[in-house]
């Protein structure tokens, strides 16, 4: 599935991934390929985008996550790699 992580300044991640774990407003949410159309607000915490053995971590705060088709879009006001 295709994942994009977008902050106001730039797209911080854009590529394929096998799984996404995001800090939703009420606890962590995991997205695997083939997820139903879904939208949730995000809280504060660590977003993990895993692709094979590589995982990309981001600290995010606020915003939302949207799954449409096989596309995951994480839109957040603050995303820093780490």
């Amino acid at each position: 599935m295709q994942v994009t992580v977008i902050s106001p300044e730039r797209s911080v991640y854009d590529g394929d991934a096998d799984s996404v774990v995001a800090p939703a407003f009420d606890g962590e949410v995991g997205i695997l390929p083939g997820h139903a159309p879904f939208m949730t607000l995000l809280g504060e915490g660590r977003l993990v985008v895993r692709e094979g053995n590589v995982s990309h971590n981001f600290e995010v705060r606020g915003g939302f996550l949207q799954v449409v088709g096989d596309q995951v879009r994480v839109v957040t006001e603050s995303a820093s790699e780490g």
């Binding site: 009420d26 139903a36 159309p37 939208m39 088709g69």
Partner: peptide
């Protein structure tokens, strides 16, 4: 797809 699962 307009019918999302929406949380909250």
């Amino acid at each position: 797809v307009p019918n999302y699962i929406l949380k909250p």
